Simulated scan of single mutants.
Amino acid sequence: MADTVSPDFALDQGDEGSVLRISGDWTVATVQEVDEALRDLAPGRPLRLDVTNLGGFDTAGAFVLDRTLRAAMPGTEDTAEIIGDHAAARSLIAQVHAVSTPAPPTPVRPGGLMAMLERTGEGFLKIVTEAIATLAFLGETLVTCARLLFRPWKLRWTSIVAVMEEAGLDALPIIAFLSFFVGMVVAFIGATTLSDFDLQIYTVELIGYSELREFGVVLTGIVLAGRTNSSFTAQIGTMKMRQEIDAMQTLGLKPMEVLVAPRIIAMVIMTPVLAFVATLAGIAGGIMVGWLSLDINPGVFIERLRTSVPLDQFWVGMSKAPVFGFVCALIACRQGLNVGGSVQSLGHATTTSVVQALFAIIVLDAMFAIFYMEMGI
Results as ranks from 00 to 15, higher is better:
1 M>D: 03
2 A>E: 09
2 A>G: 06
4 T>N: 06
5 V>L: 12
6 S>V: 08
11 L>H: 09
16 E>G: 07
17 G>S: 10
21 R>F: 00
23 S>Y: 15
25 D>E: 11
28 V>K: 01
30 T>I: 09
32 Q>N: 14
32 Q>S: 15
34 V>C: 14
37 A>W: 05
38 L>E: 07
38 L>G: 08
41 L>G: 15
43 P>Y: 03
43 P>I: 12
45 R>I: 11
45 R>F: 00
50 D>Y: 00
51 V>Q: 01
51 V>Y: 02
54 L>K: 03
59 T>G: 04
63 F>V: 15
63 F>P: 02
69 L>T: 10
72 A>I: 14
73 M>K: 09
74 P>L: 07
77 E>H: 13
78 D>Y: 00
79 T>W: 02
82 I>P: 02
84 G>L: 04
90 R>S: 14
93 I>T: 02
99 V>C: 00
99 V>N: 05
100 S>I: 14
101 T>E: 11
103 A>M: 06
104 P>A: 15
106 T>F: 02
107 P>H: 04
109 R>E: 14
110 P>K: 13
113 L>Q: 02
116 M>N: 13
117 L>Q: 12
120 T>S: 15
121 G>W: 08
121 G>A: 08
125 L>S: 07
136 A>C: 12
140 E>Q: 13
142 L>S: 07
144 T>H: 01
158 T>D: 13
161 V>E: 04
168 G>E: 05
168 G>I: 05
170 D>H: 11
172 L>P: 03
175 I>N: 03
176 A>M: 12
177 F>H: 05
182 V>P: 03
187 A>F: 06
188 F>M: 11
195 S>A: 11
195 S>E: 13
195 S>R: 15
200 Q>N: 14
205 E>H: 03
206 L>Y: 06
207 I>N: 06
208 G>M: 08
208 G>V: 05
210 S>Q: 10
213 R>G: 08
213 R>M: 10
214 E>L: 14
218 V>E: 00
225 A>L: 05
227 R>S: 14
227 R>Q: 12
233 T>F: 10
234 A>R: 10
236 I>M: 10
236 I>P: 06
243 Q>H: 04
244 E>L: 05
245 I>W: 01
247 A>E: 06
247 A>Y: 02
252 G>F: 15
256 M>T: 08
256 M>C: 03
257 E>S: 11
258 V>H: 09
266 A>G: 05
270 M>Q: 07
271 T>G: 02
274 L>A: 10
275 A>F: 09
276 F>M: 13
276 F>T: 10
278 A>Q: 10
287 I>K: 01
289 V>Q: 02
290 G>R: 01
291 W>H: 05
292 L>V: 07
293 S>E: 06
296 I>A: 10
297 N>G: 11
297 N>L: 09
300 V>C: 04
306 R>A: 03
312 D>A: 12
313 Q>G: 07
320 K>A: 03
321 A>W: 00
322 P>H: 09
324 F>P: 07
326 F>W: 03
329 A>Y: 06
330 L>M: 13
331 I>F: 00
331 I>N: 04
333 C>R: 04
333 C>T: 06
334 R>M: 15
338 N>F: 01
339 V>D: 00
339 V>C: 06
345 S>A: 07
347 G>W: 09
350 T>R: 10
350 T>Y: 11
352 T>H: 03
355 V>Y: 00
358 L>V: 12
362 I>C: 09
363 V>S: 11
365 D>P: 01
369 A>N: 08
369 A>G: 07
370 I>D: 06
371 F>R: 05
376 G>S: 04
